[in-house]
Design a protein around this nucleic acid. Sequence first.
DNA 1: CTCCGTGCAAATACTTTGCAAAGCG
DNA 2: CGCTTTGCAAAGTATTTGCACGGAG
Lengths: 131, 131
Amino acid sequence: MAIVRKSAKREAVLSLLRSVDCHPTAEWLHERLRREYPDLSLGTVYRNLRQLEDEGLIMTVGVVDGQERFDGNISDHAHFVCERCGAVTDLELKGDDGLAARAKRELGVRVDRRDVKLRGICENCLKDMRA
Amino acid sequence: MAIVRKSAKREAVLSLLRSVDCHPTAEWLHERLRREYPDLSLGTVYRNLRQLEDEGLIMTVGVVDGQERFDGNISDHAHFVCERCGAVTDLELKGDDGLAARAKRELGVRVDRRDVKLRGICENCLKDMRA
DNA sequence: CTCCGTGCAAATACTTTGCAAAGCG
DNA sequence: CGCTTTGCAAAGTATTTGCACGGAG
């Protein structure tokens, strides 16, 4: 693996990602970080996100409405995704349901992580829909 | 919602999707269906997949390695995704872990479906990696 | 002085869409 | 006949990559 140097911009990506709970897209991070780094390019944000992900410092939530969403919280937790507005909310995941163990036993696979998402309509959108 | 007519090509997409367990991409379906429908276009496959999804007859597994994967089995089940070769395998999901109920209670959301994926290395890839 | 990090722009690659023709009912 | 479906090709869009230069160690 290539050596990783410290870089102000990469640290800024990581720290911003850790400080928000909105599970941003690369573009959102780019626009937000431009305030502090006006010359920051979108390509660099993408490169740094991939690198941080490879290092295991961040994770991706998956693609929502065509754009990948990132998460600075790498603990084992679930997500709720609103199908109307795209909002992503963390959800605690208590205990182990034994699914991974069963997969290993039944399929002979090695499980590295689980990814649990609930999809539906968030509180705000429910209100909007009634209005 | 627009009226939906019967169409041989759309039915072929649905029936092929239901008959395989490999969770194909649009491209895979297109190549496979070309045997029977040489003039079938990729655009039509995409359009029909979206429409079948809207009708609730199929579901998507999400994007794996940049391509969306589809599933003709719409029962509530989990997936194992191999991070090395991209293979997707069904996994039975027993019972309800109460997560949806908790999301409703804690977040005030409406949950329509859950999406559980395990990621890791499949049996074949584990063998390859040892060799 | 050696590599890594970055801006910029071009390239990729998947998916969607517009349009006119064809076809079902 | 009216409205859906389709082929074709073009457009769209998120993400990746090549390259040359600036910068950290």
